[in-house]
């Protein structure tokens, strides 16, 4: 058993909220630059140059890359040998978000009630996902997620007869419908399998994977490449003004599912796809 004081979690999350919003991950930076190098649309090249200029400016001047500093999506992989002390874990996570968003001059974008609205004023509560894993470490990932792209995401409960083609069509249809709204070039997180709730989480977790990585199963790795190519044949382009670069990456995560179903969730993310990870 390893004791971890929850104040350690609070401190880490505070710092990670600020850093994730100011410094675009290296995989995204490299991915966007690689897209710029093979872009053949003239307007698209200009837009990509400005997008690169923007994340470099944010990096250098230590300011938020985008004004939508998102809902704080917090993923914790907690080793089963860990014993948290000093308070409630979820309170500690929210305190880290509260401090990070306040001290880091990040936007407070969370409404207390979905219909009656009302800003909570400190960007809490965070969207917290906890997985229990072997070991005595805690892996924390902070992924601020904007809603321009979140709003363009979709979930469908396919029947098995829809097959692979049904999944491919749904991914393309979702990207097509999203058009210019989610700030392309986008990252496409796809979840396939599981059930209604777990498939959405799989799609979200797909967005946490570096865009230069592949699904370990060669079948799905090939599907990731194929879908990226197909999406980039749509011609939507950066900001939707036309161009090759509609997506910088497609990540697919799968789960075993029921004999009667084949759920699929497509979680769209923008060119400011942020995530930062630390192991305690």
């Amino acid at each position: 058993m390893r004791d971890i004081d929850v104040s350690v979690i609070t401190d880490a999350i505070e710092k990670m909220c600020i850093n994730a919003n100011r410094h675009l991950p290296q995989d995204m930076q490299a991915g966007i630059k690689a897209c710029r190098a093979c872009e053949d649309g003239p307007i698209a090249c200009t837009i990509l140059d400005q997008i690169i200029d923007n994340f470099q400016t944010a990096d250098k001047e230590n300011v938020p890359i985008c004004q939508d500093t998102g809902m704080a999506c917090i993923f914790l992989e907690v080793g089963q040998e860990v014993h948290f002390t000093g308070g409630a874990l979820y309170d500690a996570v929210n305190e880290g978000v509260r401090r990070g968003y306040t001290k880091g001059y990040l936007r407070k974008s969370v409404e207390a009630d979905p219909i009656r609205r009302g800003n909570t004023g400190d960007n809490t509560p965070a969207m917290i996902t906890v997985d229990i894993v072997p070991g005595d470490k805690v892996k924390i990932t902070v992924a601020p997620k904007g809603f321009g792209s979140e709003n363009m995401s979709a979930l469908r409960m396919f029947k098995p007869s829809a097959g692979l083609q049904g999944i491919k069509d749904f991914i393309l249809e979702t990207v097509e419908k999203a058009g210019p709204n989610p700030c392309p070039p986008i990252v496409v997180g796809v979840g396939i399998g599981g059930n209604f709730d777990h498939v959405a989480l799989a799609a979200k977790k797909a967005l946490l994977r570096p865009i230069d990585s592949h699904n370990p199963d060669p079948y799905y790795a090939a599907l990731e490449d194929e879908m990226l190519e197909k999406i980039n044949e749509l011609g939507i382009g950066p900001q939707g003004f036309g161009g090759r670069t509609t997506a910088v990456g497609v990540n697919i995560e799968t789960l075993p599912t029921h004999i009667a179903g084949m759920p699929c969730a497509v979680n769209i993310s923008c060119h400011v796809t942020r995530h930062e990870t630390e192991v305690i």
């Binding site: 400005q50 923007n54 938020p64 890359i65 923008c270």
Partner: peptide, 12 residues
Amino acid sequence: FGAIGGAGALLA
């Protein structure tokens, strides 16, 4: 008019 979505640091 369209401004570049996600380019908040530059536009500011």
